[in-house]
Design a protein around this nucleic acid. Structure first.
Lengths: 195, 195
DNA sequence: CGGGAAACTGAGTGATTACTCAGTTTTTTA
DNA sequence: TAAAAAACTGAGTAATCACTCAGTTTCCCG
């Protein structure tokens, strides 16, 4: 069981940073100190290995958000939204490789032929969007968020924004950290009720 | 010259939709009706072909925005911003393959070793962000955009949002078209001066 | 211990890859 | 129209790929 763990760990980093097609079984074996055959003993194929990684990432992200919400009192729906955005960015830093992997095209390519990929991706994305939506609905109930806002659609916009920022950061296109305050301000302006 | 054009055209579609590593010279030759040797007669390598495509995409995008601004009167900076967002989304639909290609990891991987890739990517991104920034500055001058907004940073946030939506659309994750109105409303709320 | 199961090995396989090159066809030019 | 230049060809090459399999080691349980 030790080697299986090593393969999953190393493959996550390589698939995320080098890409699925550009990572060979040979390289994977070398870096994990295993024989190439071991990879195919534990996983039926390279695609199967990627799927196993995706399942882990889904579990981890869903688990992290579950723990985030445990016994956390929010002053208002607007504050809840802001804290979720903040936590998402924190998580993307903590699990950088895994979020990078989620932006890889290989996942979406396999999704077209293998429903298991799509199910896992949908579970992750829906979890995130659902949380944003719930926060907006809460905010509309307590008056901190403007009633004209469409909860689902705005949740998607919010997600687009945050996820896009993570992408920029991971690609080193712009200094995403410097945009944090601006992002929070944008969320507030976008959502808040008239004062 | 006819075959070179065909190779560039077909490779753009394949690299964008199948990926760089997953597109072979053999397939490219078959679909363009050329011999595989022809590809390497016109481009020194597969990487060189990708670079040639990227240069075309840059030229095309920069050209499109130049033409967009020709003799176009904007009522205000805020309106200008909204129209730029709108045009960006229109362009992403018109040049779907090319925008899909811009989200491919191969480009960013080559950017690390080949400065020509990075220069072209930066030219594209800076063009887009600069336009957003200029629109915000204009809006702050004419009073349609809130003075507290940081032009550059907000331009980046705006770009993040729009580009993220394009990504969702291209990946068929969510119906981006349905989010258009919400996006425009978000831009307005995010930027507009107090009323 | 003993023995069966699970984990692991690494040489081997056929397919595919990017790229080359010597030669042919087409186009341009004088 | 002849010669030079440019465009094009496709068989060939060495390397790499994902994956297999027959055999070995390690582990667990009675």
């Amino acid at each position: 069981m030790k080697k299986k763990e090593a393969i999953l760990k190393v493959a996550t980093v390589l698939f995320a940073n080098k890409g699925f097609a550009d990572t060979s079984g040979q390289e994977l074996a070398r870096l994990t100190g295993t024989a190439e055959g071991t990879i195919f003993y534990h996983f039926k194929s390279k695609e199967g290995l990627l799927l196993a990684i995706l399942e882990r990432v889904r579990d981890e992200i869903l688990d992290q958000f579950e723990r985030f919400f445990e016994n956390r009192p929010f002053q208002s729906g607007l504050e809840m939204t802001e804290e979720v955005v903040s936590f998402y960015l924190y998580l993307a830093g903590l699990m950088e490789d895994k979020f990078l992997l989620l932006h890889r095209h290989a996942l979406y390519k396999f999704s077209e032929s293998n429903p298991e990929f799509r199910e896992n991706l949908e579970a992750i994305y829906n979890c995130l969007v659902d949380i944003f939506e719930k926060a907006i609905v809460t905010g509309q109930a307590d008056g901190s968020i403007h009633p004209d806002i469409h909860p689902r659609k705005s949740a998607l916009i919010l997600f687009t924004m945050v996820d896009g920022l993570v992408r920029f950061k991971n690609y080193n296109l712009y200094d995403a950290g410097a945009l944090f305050n601006e992002l929070m301000q944008t969320c507030r302006r976008m959502l808040q009720a008239d004062t």
